[in-house]
């Protein structure tokens, strides 16, 4: 690690003031940032500790839920309202990392965690446009079975590693931000960017802007929702493909559906095309598979990761079938 100063902020306003627009990183649980500091991939002059921000989970007047940025992952998955009204979110959090890391990691930090692409971490031996813009990407011609099949570019094929964000994308969550120019909200699905020519710019956050909370809208369909993660080990591994889904079936037809994919793109991937194909249509295995195929039609595989296309199609079909249950 290169030297940095450390300050603990008492609240969001103080954190934003301490950060200014300078070379500063906010630190939550540190489960990703400490590693990145140690590898000198992150080299901030100062850290502002934001674990003292709100760690409350509060009901909203509209029936939604407001989740403070400093809520730990375990606390989120444990919360009664999350478990009963948004099970996809509890399941996604529990599918990620280990018990120890979930106790440390915050909601804000989870959203802003960086890719686990091995070439991004290999500071000594690999080229990476995300780490050193303009350098080139060794993953594209390298070992890329874990990399992106959707929305990637010729400069970056990394994936976003979060499970939680996939559920948040499906649920239509909104991210609350606070910065030097005031507060604003951004839909979670618009927060992360696709890599295009600038994979080093991963979100729409302005310099010094801080995530203060995540808001879940009221969503009746979320009561029947789940998360399925396909990975190389049964536990404690990043996703090859994951699916977050909510489904409401009425009289054999899809009344409401929410679908998002993880492990396939530079951002949590909301499956808008599949949702459109499914809505108001029959809740059948055939329709589920056709919708999944429609979503994956845009996939562009690398030499080692073509298997992810069929894996994603089958996982979507299976998860929707599970949620439809006897209604299918």
């Amino acid at each position: 690690m290169i030297p940095f100063t450390y300050t603990r902020a008492g609240d969001a306003a103080e954190a934003v003031r301490l950060a200014g627009r300078g070379d500063v990183k906010y630190i939550g649980g540190g489960t990703n940032l400490v590693d990145l500091l140690r590898e000198t991939i992150e080299r901030p002059a100062a850290l502002v500790d934001v674990t003292g921000l709100s760690s409350a989970i509060e009901p909203r007047g509209n029936g939604g839920l407001l989740i403070g940025a400093a809520v730990r992952n375990t606390a989120l998955a444990e919360h009664r309202d999350v478990r009963t009204r948004y099970p996809v979110l509890a399941r996604a959090v529990l599918a990620g990392a280990s018990g120890q890391i979930r106790n440390m990691a915050t909601v804000g930090g989870n959203i802003l965690q960086r890719t686990r692409c091995a070439y991004f971490y290999d500071t000594e031996g690999s080229r990476c446009n995300k780490r050193s813009p303009g350098q080139g990407c060794d993953a594209i011609d390298g070992f890329n079975r874990t990399h992106a099949i959707l929305g990637a570019s010729s400069s970056c094929v990394a994936t976003h590693p979060s499970d939680m964000c996939v559920a948040l994308a499906a649920l239509g969550a909104t991210v609350h931000l606070e910065g030097a120019d005031g507060a604003r909200t951004v839909p979670l699905t618009d927060l992360h960017r696709l890599p295009a020519d600038h994979p080093e710019i991963e979100t729409v956050l302005e310099p010094g802007e801080l995530i203060t909370a995540v808001e879940l809208p009221p969503l009746a369909a979320a009561a029947r929702s789940t998360y399925r993660k396909v990975r190389d080990r049964a536990s404690y591994a990043f996703a090859l493909v994951s699916v977050a889904a909510a489904l409401e079936v009425d009289n054999g037809r899809v009344k409401e559906v929410r679908l998002a994919l993880g492990g396939v793109a530079h951002k949590p991937w909301r499956a808008w095309a599949a949702e459109t194909a499914l809505r108001d249509g029959p809740a059948t295995t055939r329709a589920f598979r056709a919708a999944a195929q429609a979503e994956l039609a845009a996939a562009n595989p690398l030499p080692d990761n073509g298997f992810k296309i069929e894996l994603a199609i089958r996982t979507i079909t299976a998860v929707l079938g599970e949620l439809a249950g006897s209604d299918a």
Binding site: G30, V34, T74, M104
Partner: peptide, 27 residues
């Protein structure tokens, strides 16, 4: 491993298990 993967450094903070390798002591 010193990168949160192995759990050998697990300790309890206010009763909660954490990996101390990814914890900055000042926090």
């Amino acid at each position: 491993c010193d990168q949160g993967a192995c759990g050998a450094c697990t300790v309890l903070a206010d009763g909660e298990r954490i990996v101390s390798c990814l914890a900055l002591a000042v926090q």
